[in-house]
Design a protein around this nucleic acid. Structure first.
Length: 657
RNA sequence: GCCGCCUUAGCUCAGUCGGCUAGAGCGACGCACUCGUAAUGCGUAGGUCGUCGGUUCGAUUCCGACAGGCGGCUCCA
């Protein structure tokens, strides 16, 4: 497809594609061409001069985007055929699919999607062509779109639209796409910058996924439209593969696995977004915390502790009140003071710093704790362990001189990455969140922001990792660098954050005595490695699909006697493992051996140690690993050493035979 | 917070077009079985059908509010 193609003046791209004998059907069909400026053009585009173009096939990333956007048009046509009063919003392609927003009297019901799909099938089969038409003037466009208020708004704000999701307008001209049926009649049309497939017939496989409300142009202040999400693929097999991928993600859902593996729950009686950890989830959480605490201490952090509530003055000093008052739990009044549950740990760490005079010799001073924080997240955003109202941050604050800041940030980034790798995540990119100069949410001077942003950016660039900009995403007190980690099935999660803070040291009057005897203000660097223990645990459940590495597994070894009377033998083996700190138990239930294996398999226990007459008489056990592989008749000493070694090594793969 | 959908046993789910003792599988418990790599058989217990209110002779079923969940949107220091 990279072979260049020349469209002769006065002929269409389709002519050139046909002359070159390129496919016009199936997943390799050429659906648009890319002109020398990189712009995608419809096949009926006819340049004024000879133009070299690149043909774009349906199954390429560009081709799929065109397919998905054209499918969105088919959806919109189906909706307006079924609900004539529906007004059109926008309908872009997105990752793996598309959506289209509609203003309708009544929100779509689940069975509406089935009806709309059927209608769409008819449109696809009828082989409508998409025909581009340019408006001569703004007035002409407005006249034609008089009955589409949202489109009119887009025409009016055309100049300001800077959003890749708004496909309607853009580029130099204002264009419209008509759908023409086989008889040459115009059956539908939409304001759109294109491009589109030559025909609806080229839509091989699509599915409507769900409907949901969405604010017009993404603002809470605007009315809500009804959005329909769909997916479209270059072949039925690709669609099937996509559905399999979704099923795989569902299989890994930590909320489901949390119940199945008895790790945690969210009792209604406690409240939304407030998890409790059951013994097995507690084991994983404790292992994580123990390891992370030990690593922090190795890296020069000092472990501290702070209370969960504070008088409000502290949060005024820090600047969190009133900025974030509505995301903090309301205060309780006691003895004339208002106490808030803490939503962040930094103010308390500042007080530890300030508890006595500090010397430049102490810097960098690094304070760390698992700090419990409570945030009143809006009810609609709570999601399993990844978005909760009470959680423990693995929160640290480094107090450094301005000169030390770049080195400290580099140190923190390396530390963060190594910790994530220790837990089996090793595919990262960085995001740099900067302030939005338009917003009044951010405090501090332009110069301060500039310096801080530059420091983070330099370290990020130096790391060699991919860096993505996130304008406007900074904390109110300073810019933020975050590590995004990809899990086993390619989803990205925001984990660690490193933030440069020039605000709080001043607000708290933090200082240190410099070598020259003067008092100087330190810079404060916030960092959280996992963001929150709860979220990270949730991510790990999904990453490993519940099959935790041996060092994290709640139960590491289960002994399975072949007959009941082999239980005592295995109990002795398990007792020896326990003395080595291994979490081992014997399944003494009355189930048959096969059933015990099934149970252990479902609990995703890394080691099954099976013993029957042969093993008892030979002084051995037989391992069955989680992946079904086996190692039979292993002498007890060797078996214990083997388990201990796998656990101690903290390997994140296997075990296997 | 907004929109839609949902809430029946520990879990997953049937069911009740408003009416008599609300069902199943898994799990739990008991009994029998004693078995070499993913479900032995039989039996028992377990539900004020999310909560509160309304309509009705009668509500798990219809209506409303609230709580919780799910999918999005917005948000995520």
């Amino acid at each position: 497809m990279s072979d260049a193609l020349v469209v002769a003046a006065g002929t269409t791209a389709a002519d050139a594609v046909a002359a070159a004998g390129l496919p016009s059907n199936g997943p390799k069909a050429i659906v648009v061409v890319k002109d020398p400026s990189g712009r995608l053009r419809d096949l009926d585009w006819a340049p004024a001069a000879d133009t070299e173009v690149e043909p774009v096939a349906l199954d390429t990333p560009d081709g799929l985007n065109v397919l998905r956007h054209s499918t969105a048009h088919v959806l919109a046509q189906a909706v307006q055929a079924t609900f004539p009063e529906a007004k059109l919003g926008i309908g872009p392609f997105i990752t793996d699919g598309f959506y289209y927003d509609f203003d309708v009297e009544k929100p779509f019901q689940p069975d509406d999607l089935g009806k709309l799909e059927k209608k769409m099938q008819e449109i696809v089969k009828s082989g409508q062509t998409f025909r581009r038409r340019e408006y001569a003037s703004l007035d002409e466009a407005k006249a034609e779109l008089a009955h589409e208020p949202y489109k009119l708004e887009l025409v009016d704000i055309k100049g300001d639209v800077d959003d890749s999701e708004v496909m309607e307008v853009g580029g130099g001209e204002l264009t419209h796409y008509d759908n023409i049926d086989r008889k040459g009649e115009r059956v539908w049309g939409d304001l759109c910058r294109g491009p589109h497939l030559p025909s609806t017939r080229l839509i091989p496989a699509f599915k409507l996924m769900r409907s949901a409300a969405a604010y017009w142009r993404g603002s809470e202040k605007n009315p809500q439209l009804q959005r329909i999400y769909g997916t479209a693929w270059a072949s039925r097999d690709d669609l099937k593969a996509y559905q399999t991928r979704l099923a795989e993600a569902e299989r890994r859902d930590h909320r489901k696995l949390g119940t199945e593996l008895d790790l945690f729950s969210f009792p209604d009686e406690i409240g939304s977004g407030l998890p409790v950890f059951h013994p097995k989830g507690g084991v994983i959480k404790r292992e994580m915390e123990d390891y992370v605490r030990a690593r922090h201490i190795e890296e020069g952090f000092q472990y501290v502790g702070t209370p969960h509530i504070s008088k409000e003055g502290l949060f005024h000093t820090s600047g969190h009140l009133p900025y974030y008052k509505d995301t903090m739990f309301p205060p309780s009044h006691m003895e004339g003071a208002d106490y808030y549950l803490k939503a962040m740990n930094c103010p308390m760490h500042n007080l530890i710093y300030r508890s006595r005079g500090r010397s430049y010799r102490e810097l960098p001073l690094r304070l760390f704790e698992f700090g419990s924080v409570y945030r009143y997240e809006k009810s609609g955003v709570i999601h399993g362990l990844t978005r909760v109202r009470g959680f423990a941050q693995d929160d640290s604050h480094s107090y450094v001189t301005a000169e030390q800041a770049p080195g400290e940030i580099k140190h923190l980034l390396n530390f963060v990455l190594s910790l994530l790798r220790d837990f089996g995540l090793d595919d990262f990119y960085l995001e740099l969140s900067t302030r939005d100069p338009e917003s009044d949410k951010f405090i501090g001077s332009d110069e301060q922001w500039e310096i801080a942003t530059k420091v983070l950016e330099d370290v990020a660039t130096e790391s060699g990792l991919q860096l993505v900009a996130d304008p406007g995403g900074a904390a109110f007190y300073g810019p933020k660098m975050s590590v995004q980690a990809k899990d086993a099935i390619g989803r990205t999660w925001q984990m660690s954050t490193i933030q440069y803070d020039f605000n709080q040291p001043a607000r708290f009057g933090l200082e240190y005595q410099a070598a020259d005897g003067t008092r100087q203000e330190p810079v404060m660097i916030h960092s959280a490695k996992f963001g929150s223990i709860e979220r990270f645990l949730g991510v790990l459940v999904e990453h490993y699909a519940g099959a935790f590495p041996a060092w994290l597994a709640p139960v590491q070894v289960v002994g399975i006697p072949i007959r009941d009377d082999h239980g005592d033998y295995l109990q002795e083996f398990v007792d020896r493992l326990r003395k080595q700190g291994i979490r081992a138990e014997v399944d003494h239930s009355t189930d048959r051996m096969q059933k015990k294996i099934r149970t252990a398999q479902q609990q995703k226990i890394p080691f099954m140690a099976i013993a029957g007459d042969d093993d008892v008489s030979g002084g051995t056990v037989s391992f069955r690993y989680r992946d079904g592989s086996q190692r039979n008749n292993v002498p007890l000493d060797e078996a214990i050493a083997h388990v201990a070694e796998v656990v101690r090594s903290r390997t994140n793969v296997g075990p296997t035979a």
